[in-house]
């Protein structure tokens, strides 16, 4: 039982890291543009497929493909904002919400058109897990966790040490006050899309390494990603990270008592509980 618990916690941390990376973008975008980006899951999918281009046809190693895919997705996110959301800046947040829902389908169908609907893997070689007593650890999981931690540290430095990073946090706190302060809000919005896109790509690649690439990859985790962002409190990137890990572990550990097919229900239950009892997130209100 204890072994199971430890094993599941390890899986949970890996999955939680993926949720966390996705949730940071959702949380910041929600804080700054005041809408839930339903296309975030499909941005994750896009990042995963961009990495496939680099490791597949271009035959580059993953450590090159990874940053390239992050940069590509960041650019795509910025381009999407220019082409679409910028035109809707004055519209009500609900119009943005509907638009992002449509965008999710556009991205997904584009991916399906380009890469087809079938499951794809980056590599076919099988890596044997390490054994620590009865606990098994997959080497890719270690790498993924390490890179997740590195990305979180880099994010922290960006948000606390750079002008634009501080402006981003300020704008997520209160977009109106940011304008009044003279912060160039359009620039901050672009940076937020870029950051959200890059982190979504990282999450998507990890997810694809852990499972398989397919056009529904990101959409399937949108619910726990939103749950993580809500759990952490909207507009609070650190809360989103904590929320992601918490949800990842909770989801895996829940399989001790719950049929694993109902794992997504855990995310839903968390969403409902948070919304009803702590609408400002678990980690304190304003």
């Amino acid at each position: 039982m204890l072994v199971d618990l430890v094993q599941l916690t390890i899986f949970g941390l890996v999955v939680g890291g993926i949720f966390a990376l996705g949730a940071v973008g959702v949380s910041l975008l929600f804080g700054i543009l005041r809408f839930a980006n339903f296309a975030h899951g499909d941005m994750m999918t896009l990042g995963a497929y961009l990495a496939l281009v680099f490791v597949g046809p271009l035959a580059l190693p993953m450590w090159v493909a990874f940053p390239a895919a992050l940069a590509g997705t960041a650019l795509a996110a910025v381009a999407i904002d220019r082409a679409l959301f910028k035109r809707l800046r004055r519209a009500s947040p609900v119009i943005l919400l509907i638009s992002s829902f449509g965008l999710a389908l556009i991205l997904r169908s584009l991916i399906q058109i380009i890469w087809g609907p079938e499951n794809i893997v980056y590599w076919t070689d099988i890596v044997l897990p390490w054994r620590l007593g009865e606990i098994r650890i997959r080497p890719p999981h270690v790498v993924m966790l390490a890179v997740t931690v590195a990305l979180v540290v880099a994010l922290h430095l960006f948000l606390t040490r750079t002008r634009i990073g501080k402006a981003m946090r300020a704008m997520a706190d209160d977009p109106d006050l940011a304008r009044i302060t003279g912060i160039p809000t359009e620039r901050v919005i672009l940076w937020t899309w870029a950051l959200g896109g890059a982190l979504a790509a990282a999450a998507g690649i990890f997810l694809a390494v852990d499972t398989r690439l397919n056009p529904l990859l990101g959409w399937n985790v949108l619910l726990p990603v939103f749950a993580a962002a809500l759990l952490g409190g909207i507009g609070k990137p650190y809360g989103a990270i904590a929320g992601g890990f918490l949800l990842g572990v909770a989801g895996e550990v829940s399989t001790l008592v719950l049929d694993p097919v109902y794992k997504p229900a855990v995310a839903f239950a968390v969403i409902v509980l948070v919304l009803v009892y702590r609408p400002t997130g678990l980690f304190g209100g304003r």
Partner: peptide, 23 residues
């Protein structure tokens, strides 16, 4: 301009609030 309500960035520190004023 200092609005009546919502006139600080609550999750930021005092120093960060002031620095952003000089953005």
């Amino acid at each position: 301009y200092v609005p009546q309500e919502r006139n600080v960035f609550p999750s930021l520190t005092v120093q960060e609030n002031l620095e952003l004023g000089a953005y």
